[in-house]
């Protein structure tokens, strides 16, 4: 194992990896999402049929994952902009990453009930 650098294996590298992975995932969902929405131009029944899958408990988990990916990509994207344009950005990039993670955890906790509540009620009754 070669010696580490200031970058490799540290916050900067892993936030870059996570930004890339979440970005690609969101992009692939976007294709599917435009296609399913295009069904409103076919017929109301076809559209409602496909949207019904979005309401199933398993897909609700995927939606929670989508929200997780989008929130991280959005918050970390703002951090990248701050690193690029704010004169002190590079110096505080690490602190900004942990702020991103902190805000992300709070928002994900807040999204728990709105996004997964209906699936929870469906699986566990009442």
């Amino acid at each position: 194992m070669p010696a580490g650098t200031l970058y490799r294996g540290r916050e900067g590298m892993w936030s870059w990896v996570a930004h890339r992975v979440t970005g690609v995932l969101i992009f692939f969902f976007l294709f599917v999402h435009v296609l399913d929405t295009a069904l409103v131009r076919v017929s109301p029944e076809q559209y409602d049929n496909v949207v019904a899958t979005y309401k199933s408990p398993i897909v609700a988990l995927l939606e929670y994952g989508l929200v997780a990916a989008i929130l991280f990509h959005a918050l970390n994207g703002l951090r990248v902009i701050a690193v690029d344009f704010w004169s002190k950005g590079p110096r505080y990039q690490k602190q900004m990453l942990w702020s991103v993670v902190g805000i992300w955890v709070v928002l994900m906790f807040g999204a728990l009930y709105p996004v997964l509540g209906h699936a929870f009620r469906e699986v566990f009754g009442s």
């Binding site: 409103v40 559209y47 929130l71 709105p114 996004v115």
Partner: peptide, 22 residues
Amino acid sequence: LGHLLIQLVLDGGVSKIGFAFV
């Protein structure tokens, strides 16, 4: 984030989405 808030959080979340909502 506005889109997610409207579609997945407010007013019953994903359950209210349908042709009529669109």
